[in-house]
Design a protein around this nucleic acid. Structure first.
Lengths: 339, 339
DNA sequence: GTTTGGCACTCACTGTGTTCGAGTGCCAGC
DNA sequence: GCTGGCACTCGAACACAGTGAGTGCCAAAC
C-alpha cells in the first residue's frame, strides 16, 4: 500500500516531468512542491515507488521518470480533468459554428483539437450503423443501373451503384423509393435490416429481383464498417518531442498512416466516457507503444456515433488533454444535433 | 558556356549526391565515373560550376553539393524520365484495379505513389469544374428544404442543402429535376451556368424564387474551388532524410497540413505535362523551400481533371520519381475512364 | 518507526585538446 | 588545356579530465 504522501510524491514527479521533460530528482522536488519533508525522506519514498514499478531511473545517478504504470495510477487516482477556460470554450464554439457541412465539421474539429492539445488529433467520421436515416434516394442512371444514396442525420452521405438483374421502370422505382423511405426514415441504421426484410414480397414478381438487389446493396453499405473514415491532423506537433528524434517519430507516423490501426485503437476504447490508453497498453501497433491515446465518443444525441481523440507522448499533460478532448467532443455533438 | 564535360561532371555530382547524401569530392568522382580525366581537372571544372552557381560547398575542405540551380539544370537538360519496370507497371495496375469507389481510388493512389517513390504523395480529388455531369438530383427533405446532389463522371458526389423561399410542390420538383437533367447531363461543369441561365423563366411565378435559389446553390457548388480536397500519404518517409532532423521535418509537416498551400502549389503547376519545382521555387510556403515537388495532371480523357505528385527533398532521384509519377497518373486516368 | 543530515559514490554531460584525413586551391611542367 | 605535386583548411572523431546533480546507505534525532 502506498501512503498518501507517496502518492503525492508520484503526482509531483509526473507533473514536474511533464513540465520539464527531464528526470526529476529528490532535491528539485522538495524545492518546487511543498511536501513538508526533506529530500532524504523523498528519496526513501522514491525507492519504494521504484520498487513497486511506478517510476524508474534512466541510468544511475539520474532523477526518476514515471513508468507507464506510474502514469496509469496518476490518471486513475491522482489527476482530475482540467476544464477549459471560458474564453477557450467560446473560441471552440465560434470556430465550430462556422462549419458548413460534415466534412468541414470534421476538418475543423481536427484542427481545433490539434491546436488545443498541441498534439496529433484524430477524428472519426460519424459511423453509419449508429446514425439514423434521414433519407434514402434511388436514381435511375441507365435502364438497368441505379444509384443508391443514403443520407444520415449527421449529414453524412454515402452512395453506391446498383446493377439490376432486370430493367426497372420509373413507376416501380418511385414506388420502391416511397415505401423504403416510409419504413426507414428516422430509424437507426442498425434496425434497417429487419425493417425492410419483407419488402420484396409486396412487389410484382418481375421486379422482386431488382428490389432484392437494391436492398442487398443497402445492407452491405450499412455493414461496411471498413468504410469507416477518419481524419488526422497536427502531425507537426510530433516534432516537439524527443531529442532522440527520428527513432521516435518514424514509427508513430507509420502507425498513423495505417488507418486500420487507428480505427482498431478507437474501437477498443470504452463506448461511454473517456478512455486513456498509456504506452504499451496500445498494443495495436508497436509504433505506438511510447505514446498515449486519449479518446472519447461524441454524438448528436445522448448516444455516441463516433469517437475522437489525440495521440501524444506518454509524457503528456493528461488533465489538460482530457479536458480539451471532452470539451471538443461535447461541442461537436451539439453542432451535429443542430444541423 | 559550359562544356560538355562540365555538364557531365554536374550530372555525376547530382547522381552521387542523391545516392550517398554526402558532399562529393573530386577524387571520388573520378573513381566512380569514367570521366577520362584526372581529379585535378575535375577540380577546375568544379571551380567553374561553383562560380556559375550550380554547386556549392557546405564548408571549406568539404566536397560539393548541387544548388537548386544545379538541380534545375540537371532536370531540364541532363536527366531523362526513367520508365518503370514492367513488373512495377503490372503491380500498379493490379493495385488500382481493385479500387471500389472514388475515395478508394484516391486512397490507393496515394499509397502507391508514396511506396514507389518513398516520398510524400499528394493526390487531388478530381475537380468539379473540369468534370462532366452524370446526374443532378433534387430531394425534398421538408416542406421548404431541398437537398441538391451532384454526381460527376469521375464518381464524385457533392451535396448541398437548399432552403427555399417558398414551399415547393412535388410536381414542380419533378419538373425541375427533369428539365435540369435534360440540359446538363453529359456537359462539362464549366458550361453549366449558361445552360441553365434562362430556366427560372419557364416556371410559374410562385416557383421562380425557389428555382433561382436552387440554381444559385448549384452554381455556387461549382465555383467552390476552395472545396478542392486532397489526400496526403507517406509522411513517414520524411524521416528518411536529414540527420539535422527536427529542424528539417517540422516546417514540411506544417506546410503539408495547410491544404491551401498544397493546392496553391499544384495549381501553379503546368496544365499539361510534368512540372518540377525545386527548392526555393516553391515560394508558396517557406517550409517547402528545401523540398522539390514533382506533379502532373491526370484525367479520365485527354484532359486533366486534377493533379497528383510527390513532395521530397531537393536531393531526390528525379528521373525515377518523375517516371513513377507519370506512370501512376496514367493508370489512374485509365481507371477513372473505365468506371 | 519514521525522518533527517551527512557522506561517499556514480555517471552523464561538457569543454578542451589533439589527431586524422578528405578535400581544396594553386602552380609548375608536360 | 591537362596533370601531378604540395601546402593548407577545417570538420569529424576520439580521448580525457572536471563538474555536479543525483543516489544509496547509515547513524542519530524526533
Amino acid at each position: 500500500m502506498l501512503s498518501e504522501r507517496r502518492l503525492e510524491v508520484l503526482r509531483a514527479i509526473v507533473q514536474d516531468y511533464v513540465g520539464t521533460e527531464e528526470p526529476v530528482g529528490s532535491k528539485a522536488l522538495t524545492e518546487r512542491h511543498a511536501l513538508g519533508v526533506s529530500p532524504a525522506t523523498v528519496r526513501n519514498d522514491m525507492a519504494v515507488l521504484e520498487e513497486e514499478g511506478f517510476i524508474a531511473q534512466p541510468h544511475t545517478s539520474a532523477g526518476r521518470i514515471p513508468t507507464d504504470k506510474g502514469y496509469r495510477l496518476f490518471v486513475d487516482r491522482l489527476a482530475g480533468v482540467k476544464p477549459l477556460s471560458s474564453p477557450e470554450r467560446r473560441a471552440i464554439q465560434n470556430f465550430l459554428d462556422s462549419a458548413v457541412d460534415l466534412d468541414d465539421v470534421v476538418a475543423r474539429t481536427v484542427r481545433l483539437l490539434a491546436q488545443l492539445t498541441r498534439q496529433v488529433a484524430v477524428v472519426q467520421y460519424p459511423s453509419l450503423t449508429r446514425s439514423t436515416v434521414r433519407h434514402v434516394e434511388l436514381l435511375s442512371l441507365a435502364a438497368a443501373r441505379l444509384m443508391l444514396v443514403l443520407i444520415t442525420d449527421t449529414g453524412r452521405v454515402e452512395q453506391r451503384m446498383v446493377d439490376c438483374p432486370a430493367p426497372f421502370g420509373e413507376a416501380s422505382l418511385a414506388d420502391l423509393r416511397a415505401r423504403l423511405n416510409a419504413r426507414v426514415v428516422g430509424r437507426r441504421f442498425a434496425d434497417v435490416p429487419q425493417l425492410v426484410q419483407d419488402l420484396p414480397e409486396s412487389f410484382e414478381p418481375e421486379d422482386r429481383g431488382t428490389v432484392s438487389t437494391v436492398l442487398a446493396t443497402l445492407l452491405e453499405t450499412l455493414v461496411e464498417e471498413t468504410e469507416e473514415r477518419l481524419m488526422i491532423g497536427g502531425t507537426a506537433n510530433l516534432t516537439r518531442f524527443g531529442h532522440d528524434f527520428p527513432l521516435t517519430i518514424r514509427p508513430v507516423l507509420e502507425a498513423l498512416e495505417e488507418q486500420v490501426v487507428l480505427l482498431k485503437l478507437l474501437g477498443e476504447a470504452k463506448e461511454s466516457g473517456m478512455t486513456v490508453r498509456i504506452g504499451h497498453e496500445n498494443n495495436a501497433h508497436e509504433g505506438l507503444n511510447s505514446t498515449s491515446v486519449v479518446s472519447v465518443g461524441y454524438g448528436s444525441g445522448g448516444e455516441a456515433v463516433a469517437k475522437l481523440g489525440v495521440v501524444g507522448p506518454t509524457r503528456m499533460d493528461y488533465p489538460g488533454t482530457m479536458g480539451a478532448v471532452r470539451a471538443v467532443a461535447r461541442y461537436v455533438g451539439q453542432i451535429l444535433a443542430e444541423s
